[in-house]
Deep mutational scan, measured.
Amino acid sequence: MDETGKELVLALYDYQEKSPREVTMKKGDILTLLNSTNKDWWKVEVKITVNGKTYERQGFVPAAYVKKL
């Protein structure tokens, strides 16, 4: 869990989004888990830094590609 009590997951593999509802992740990324009720796709939040500014983006990743921490 992070400092706000949200559950975290670890990306076990790289994943490139294939639709606007998904998010890209790299092996080793730590993501915030938002919803894991679907056994195949989990909703996560990723933080992306571009030119020194951090953005948060929500989307789905394959559940088999992440592990709860």
Rank of each mutant, 00 (worst) to 15 (best):
M1L: 13
M1N: 13
M1H: 15
M1P: 15
M1E: 14
D2I: 09
D2T: 10
D2M: 08
D2Y: 03
E3K: 08
E3P: 12
E3L: 07
E3R: 04
E3A: 10
E3S: 11
E3V: 10
E3G: 12
E3F: 05
E3D: 13
T4M: 14
T4H: 14
T4V: 12
T4K: 12
T4F: 14
G5H: 14
G5C: 13
G5P: 14
G5K: 14
K6A: 12
K6F: 13
K6V: 14
K6R: 14
E7N: 11
E7V: 15
E7L: 10
E7P: 10
E7I: 15
L8I: 08
L8K: 13
L8F: 15
V9H: 02
V9Y: 05
V9L: 10
V9W: 04
V9D: 00
V9G: 10
V9E: 00
V9M: 04
V9T: 02
V9I: 07
L10C: 08
L10W: 06
L10D: 01
L10V: 15
L10N: 02
L10E: 10
L10T: 06
L10H: 04
A11Y: 02
A11D: 00
A11Q: 01
A11T: 04
A11M: 02
L12D: 01
L12W: 03
L12N: 02
L12H: 02
L12V: 07
L12Q: 04
L12R: 04
L12P: 00
Y13E: 09
Y13D: 07
Y13H: 10
Y13W: 12
Y13T: 07
D14E: 05
Y15P: 01
Y15I: 01
Y15D: 00
Y15G: 01
Y15E: 01
Y15C: 02
Q16W: 13
Q16K: 14
Q16T: 15
Q16N: 14
Q16S: 11
Q16A: 12
E17S: 15
E17V: 05
E17Y: 05
K18S: 10
K18F: 05
K18L: 09
K18T: 13
K18G: 07
K18D: 05
K18N: 10
S19Y: 06
S19Q: 07
S19E: 07
S19V: 04
S19P: 04
P20Q: 10
P20H: 10
R21N: 14
R21F: 13
R21S: 13
R21W: 15
E22W: 03
E22D: 05
E22V: 04
E22Q: 11
E22R: 04
E22S: 05
V23F: 07
V23H: 02
V23I: 15
V23C: 07
T24D: 03
T24M: 04
T24I: 02
T24W: 03
T24N: 06
M25D: 00
M25H: 00
M25R: 00
M25K: 00
K26W: 11
K26G: 04
K26M: 09
K27H: 05
K27R: 11
K27P: 02
K27S: 07
K27D: 02
G28E: 02
G28P: 00
D29T: 06
D29K: 03
D29N: 05
D29I: 02
D29A: 06
D29M: 10
D29Q: 12
I30V: 13
I30S: 02
I30C: 05
I30H: 04
I30Q: 04
L31Q: 01
L31N: 01
T32N: 07
T32W: 12
T32A: 12
T32M: 10
T32F: 10
T32L: 15
T32C: 08
L33P: 00
L33S: 01
L34M: 07
L34K: 05
L34W: 04
L34A: 03
L34N: 02
N35P: 03
N35W: 06
N35R: 07
N35A: 09
N35C: 09
N35D: 15
S36N: 09
S36W: 08
S36Y: 07
S36F: 06
T37H: 11
T37V: 09
T37R: 08
T37N: 13
N38Y: 07
N38H: 11
N38G: 10
N38D: 15
N38F: 07
K39H: 12
K39E: 09
K39W: 07
K39N: 13
K39Y: 08
D40I: 14
D40W: 15
D40A: 12
D40E: 12
D40P: 02
W41F: 06
W41L: 03
W41T: 02
W42H: 02
W42P: 01
W42Q: 00
W42V: 06
W42A: 04
K43G: 05
K43R: 10
V44I: 06
E45I: 12
E45T: 08
E45A: 14
E45G: 13
E45L: 12
E45D: 04
V46D: 03
V46E: 03
V46P: 02
K47G: 07
K47D: 08
K47L: 13
K47S: 13
K47N: 10
I48W: 11
I48A: 07
I48G: 06
I48D: 07
I48S: 07
T49L: 12
T49D: 10
T49G: 06
T49M: 13
T49C: 11
T49R: 10
T49N: 11
V50Q: 10
V50H: 09
V50M: 13
V50C: 10
V50W: 09
N51D: 15
N51I: 06
N51H: 10
N51G: 13
N51M: 11
N51T: 07
N51Q: 11
G52R: 05
K53E: 13
K53H: 15
K53M: 14
K53S: 11
T54Q: 11
T54S: 12
T54R: 09
T54H: 11
T54Y: 09
T54I: 12
Y55T: 12
Y55Q: 11
Y55H: 08
Y55L: 12
Y55P: 02
Y55R: 07
E56Q: 15
E56N: 14
E56F: 15
E56D: 13
E56R: 15
R57M: 06
R57V: 07
R57T: 06
R57Y: 05
R57E: 04
Q58Y: 07
Q58K: 08
Q58F: 06
Q58W: 08
Q58N: 08
G59Q: 01
G59T: 01
G59V: 03
F60A: 02
F60P: 00
F60R: 03
F60G: 01
F60M: 09
F60I: 06
F60V: 07
F60E: 04
F60S: 03
V61K: 00
V61W: 00
V61C: 04
V61D: 00
P62Y: 02
P62I: 02
P62N: 02
P62K: 03
A63F: 02
A63I: 03
A63P: 04
A63K: 06
A63C: 06
A63M: 04
A63H: 03
A64C: 13
A64I: 11
A64E: 09
A64W: 08
Y65R: 05
Y65W: 06
Y65L: 12
Y65M: 12
Y65T: 06
Y65K: 06
V66W: 01
V66T: 04
V66I: 08
V66M: 06
K67C: 14
K67R: 15
K68L: 15
K68V: 12
L69E: 03
L69N: 03
L69K: 04
L69S: 03
